[in-house]
Design a protein around this nucleic acid. Sequence first.
RNA 1: GCUCCCAUCGUCUAGUGGUCCAGGACGUGGCCCUCUCAAGGCCGAAACACGGGUUCGAGUCCCGUUGGGAGCACCA
Length: 544
Amino acid sequence: MADIRTRFAPSPTGYLHLGSARTALYSWAYARRHGGACVLRIEDTDRARSTLESERALLSGLAWLGLDWDEGPVRQSEHGERHAEVVEQLLERGAAYRCSCSREELEERRSQTLAQGRSWVYDGRCRERNLSADCGPHTVRLRLDLDSHLGWDDLVYGESGQAACEIGDMNIRRSDGHPLYNLAVVVDDSDMRISHVIRGADHLGNTAFQIAIYRALELEPPRFAHVPLIVGASGKKLSKRRDPVSVEQFRDDGYLADALLNWLVRIGWSHGDQEVFSRDEICALFDLETVNRASAQADPGKLDWLNQHYLKQLPAGELLEQLLPFLTEVAGAEVKPTPELAALAQLLCERSSTLRDMAGRAAFAVVETPERDSKAEKKFLKPTALPILEALVQRLRRVDPWDEAQLEAAFEDVRAAQGDIGMGKLAQPVRVAVTGSSASPGIYETPAAPRPGSTRRSAYWAPSAAWRASRPPPTASASPASNPRAARVVARPAPTRFRRMARLASRPATGVDRPGLAPASGSAGSPALSSPPAGGLRSLRFGK
RNA sequence: GCUCCCAUCGUCUAGUGGUCCAGGACGUGGCCCUCUCAAGGCCGAAACACGGGUUCGAGUCCCGUUGGGAGCACCA
């Protein structure tokens, strides 16, 4: 086949729409697959609705998706003169004619026709009037061969077309002298030597008339491929109201570009049973012949699944890099990359479907005072859990090195020493104390990656004010009160400790805040806290 | 209303006249694993819209019905 040239031609009247993104993807992939070129053309001839801001949004959306183009972007409005010139040519040759019917007249005749149950096409009133340029306000219409059939072989829909008489002599130029969409598209596609026009099926109705324009211009039309519409859960065309349609929104919600691309490419296209397509595979395998004809619903659940799949595949460093903006949002302050956070992200990605989701789960590691799930707190941070935790803290002092195996050993020891209690009795309170939630990664893994700027061990123990409040007063004879040290501890004001933590966190730590993601070193963090706590819970909170 | 398009599990789809009592994936139910939540593994429920043809044989071809969608501008 001759040179394959596709184009993506969005109009800058909003953000990058899901449907547009898929059309862009298809055009891009088809060109890549066949070693051709993809051109970006901004259809900005509707001055009233086109904005520069939308154009920027379009470009940034495409850039984020990683859809690049070989030529452009060119603005359709730059071709105004060329469009005007073509219309004049058609006029001279008699292939087009001036029409002085006013909107009002047209509207009246149309509604009359419609009232009779017939479909309206321009009735040809000015067709033979031979109006000249000085006939007053007028539009220009294309003179169709009303006996002809305007057909094409669609790459997706097969033989398509319409009788010319069902279309009628449509306008190609407005009374203000500006060309209409159909004319501009044909001229531009032809001038740009576009070989394959890939666009939404909502353009099916335009194509017949465009074929007529090609014929009037004595031009060979390109191949057309109309791709089925993406519909929302309602079964109707995606709407801003009901459906998530902005690519930027997906990005801000924490979806990965690769996941979105994979999701989009499979809506309406398939390659056997394959579900996961890398960018390269899309380029290697995508073809128009295998595009489905029925419109398809976009299933957000499948996107979530795909997104997690790609999340899990991301190398640790890159994953954290992607996560950082979301963490920063959660923390309310800039979050710097650390090896601990990278490890945590790794742990979290098999339980998160989006980056935003993941950031929420990582909040305990970046927030000064982690929020506690009140249900979990009520259920697990009971006074009876305190002595157990105290025992664990004592035991943790001897953990060295601070790794999963040693932590497990410590937990096991405590469990046995506390009367062989179930693991859940120990792990759940710890989990809630550390993460604020009853759901988190493994209990030996979780403490390995707590907040940056503090040491692992100190961050591990941060009972909230709510927990303290839930405790009975120290004088009570309940079991925790029988442990004087614990009682003393919980009676003390926590804010002091938090201030201390904050000071430590803001200190220029030697290993933790370095930008690279080198493996955790045993001496990371401030020296003062890098060794095991000296005095149990009390010292963890208040000791110096 | 008119024109055109479409029709396989809830969703995306495989299927191009026999190899389909219809396959995969997401979702969903159960079980296993297990310190929680996941992830993972195993098992299950779940569809050819309906009616006529054509044919030895139809999810696959034809017609109709029904249902859904899109388009019908001096918008793009």
